[in-house]
């Protein structure tokens, strides 16, 4: 069913309609949180929030604001559903997800409500693809209860500098240790691998450091396997905010600029690794 011949009757039944001139603007940001198949979608008049979780220890959220879309119509305060993210990404890139300038896939995403599939209409070069992705009951995302009022330490870095560190991280280390402190070593990433220990220090007055707000020395360990998916978001981003709260929870917020220069956010929450046998 081509875009133009969609009946008005159908149109009226949708509780959510979102259109984009360039499907890459959404597919790219979803790639940044693709580490599990199940994705929880929650749409509000503000935009779309997509959540992916792993092992109740890691949560990734992608926020795509309503004004990123050329059309964003929502008939309820909140619309939620769950879909298979890998399938959705294959559908969004059905025409190959070309990066050639001037060639883009137009997207119209429609949802009729509970029990209905998520329908995508994609068009590129006069060829139309219609995808109906079955939806599931949305699960309640875990509330990590990460409040900005509880934040102990916070730094904002140019992603460039963290990309370098992450690409060189010793992946044989089971954990990544993050030290944040108002005094030396300020911001330190440490690994403990087969071939020895490594520390990456960032001086607080480095050009790469946009903001440095550390109030207390804090050292926490995070499972490398849990942090690994976040490198996808890091690769796309231009800035990253690293925060820890009083419980040692880690929040990574990535600022991602899309093809059209608009800004979206991707956020990762990660639980600290508890020492086994600790009383």
């Amino acid at each position: 069913m081509p875009l133009s011949t969609q009946s008005q009757a159908d149109e009226a039944q949708y509780v959510l309609v979102a259109s984009l001139d360039n499907a890459r603007n959404i597919s790219n940001i979803l790639k940044a949180i693709t580490f599990k198949d199940h994705a929880i979608f929650n749409a509000t008049p503000n935009g779309l929030k997509v959540t992916v979780e792993d092992s109740k220890c890691l949560q990734a959220n992608a926020f795509i604001q309503a004004d990123i879309f050329q059309e964003f119509t929502i008939k309820e305060d909140s619309v939620g559903f769950q879909v298979n993210l890998t399938v959705l990404l294959d559908c969004l890139t059905i025409f190959g997800g070309s990066t050639v300038p001037g060639v883009s896939t137009a997207l119209r995403m429609c949802y009729m409500g509970y029990g209905h599939p998520l329908t995508l209409f994609l068009e590129e070069g006069g060829v139309v693809t219609v995808c109906k992705i079955n939806t599931q009951e949305p699960e309640e995302p875990i509330d990590f209860d990460f409040c900005s009022s509880n934040v102990t330490n916070k730094v904002i870095l140019q992603s460039e500098s963290l990309k370098e560190a992450f690409s060189e991280l010793d992946m044989t280390s089971e954990v990544l240790q993050v030290t944040m402190s108002p005094s030396q070593p300020y911001f330190r990433l440490s690994t403990f691998g087969n071939s020895g220990n490594a520390h990456y220090d960032y001086p607080k007055d480095s050009d790469m450091m946009e903001l440095f707000q550390c109030t207390k020395t804090q050292t926490n360990r995070y499972k490398m396997s849990l942090l690994k998916p976040s490198t996808k978001a890091l690769a796309l981003s231009c800035k990253v905010s690293v925060r820890t709260d009083s419980r040692g929870f880690l929040s990574l917020q990535y600022l991602v600029r899309n093809d059209d220069g608009q800004i979206c956010f991707v956020e990762y929450y990660c639980c600290p690794d508890e020492e086994v046998g600790e009383d």
């Binding site: 693809t129 219609v130 109906k132 992705i133 079955n134």
Partner: peptide, 12 residues
């Protein structure tokens, strides 16, 4: 499939 149905239309 159980998860999804996709149709690509070519014309002319």
């Amino acid at each position: 499939t159980d998860l999804v149905s996709v149709t690509t239309h070519f014309k002319d």
